[in-house]
Simulated scan of single mutants.
Amino acid sequence: MRINLILLSIFSFTVISCGNYYSMDDFKSVEKIDAHFHIYTSESTAVEQAKKDKFKLLSINTHSGACERVIESHQWLRKLNKEYPAEMEYSGTFCMDGWDEPGWNENTINWLDQCIADGANSVKVWKNIGMEFRDKNANLVMIDDPQFDTVFAYLSEKKIPLVGHLGEPKNCWLPLSEMTTKNDSGYFSRNPQYHMYKHPEFPSYEDQMAARDHMLDKNPDLIFIGCHLASLEWSVDVLAEWLDKYPNAAVDMAARMGQLFYQTCEDRDKVRAFFIKYQNRILYGTDIIDRGGNTEDFHNKIHETWLRDWEYLATRNKMTSSLIDGEFRGLQLPKEVIDKIYSSNTKRWYKSF
């Protein structure tokens, strides 16, 4: 009788344990949001692929070109949001044009008012602040510049999230041969203008992070979503300390899976424990860019990226990746953690969907 009870207990534990995790078969049935997508076209078929894979999209508008592009992209996103109100939402952003002229703050706030009225749920700032844009005296403008204070105070008062891609991965300040992930070495070899190892005259990695944190210190009520694991992707320990310091901040995972894979190779248990402890502060995203003219290959790329990341987060399969060298095992996060990372966290932090 005692043996039967023990066997029954073991069997029950196994059933409960298996029931607490998703499998690859669950991928298309679980509600998911890609919280860092880019749509730069008026006719996006990526939304249709998202519907097939049970995804919704948050398209992030970015000042990565001329101001005319910001305005045009906003109009495209507004149009798509009206066509697919249940499937996609979008952020606004602002330009740096007129920075040295009177009225920049007022004009920027008026523009952001219009973006929010049109349906944007947040405001994006990009790495051109701190790494590219210069004032009339040829000084790089950092994100903690006092001229931004009224804009960020406006966002704080209105409870509008600020979405920040500030700085770059720490690999950016290393020679290509010392970078920990192949996606970084590939990107910076193609974009040497952003490879800070080659530009010691620019602010250091530590300077970029300090400016970001100083801005947050000045705006303690600001809701902040740090893109790309807040550029602290190289260490879940350091990222944990940062999240502890800034309770109004969350992070998305976009384009930083390679760094997570790399750390998982070294210490899977530590990475898994990080995800479980900060399960309310992490948002899934990819940084995929849709510029229109989509092909079947592009749709397959989206699907395969989403499927790979699901395997890593939801299962304990042995995996390899073109992003890094070495083999690692998926994190197999509990269902409630997966549901937060893939959906409810984005809904809560952006107050959308």
Rank of each mutant, 00 (worst) to 15 (best):
F13Q: 04
I10M: 08
D25I: 11
Q49K: 08
H36T: 14
V15F: 09
Y22T: 09
S29W: 06
Y40F: 13
D25H: 12
Q49P: 03
K32W: 02
D34K: 04
F11R: 03
G19L: 03
T45V: 06
T14E: 00
V15E: 02
I10V: 15
F11Y: 14
N20P: 00
S29C: 13
L8C: 11
G19H: 00
D26R: 02
V30M: 09
N20M: 07
I33C: 10
K51V: 09
V30Y: 01
H38T: 11
K32S: 05
H38P: 02
S44L: 04
A50M: 02
Y40E: 12
A46I: 07
K52A: 07
S17G: 03
F13T: 14
E43K: 00
K51W: 11
H36R: 06
D25C: 11
D26K: 10
A46F: 07
V47S: 00
F27Q: 09
S9F: 02
Y22N: 04
Y40L: 13
N20L: 00
G19V: 01
K52E: 12
A50Q: 12
S9K: 09
E43Y: 09
K28G: 01
D25W: 04
A50F: 06
S17K: 07
I16D: 07
I33G: 07
A50T: 02
S44E: 02
M24G: 02
N20I: 01
S12G: 15
D26M: 03
A50H: 13
I33E: 01
S29L: 07
D34A: 00
V47E: 12
Y21W: 01
D26F: 07
Q49Y: 03
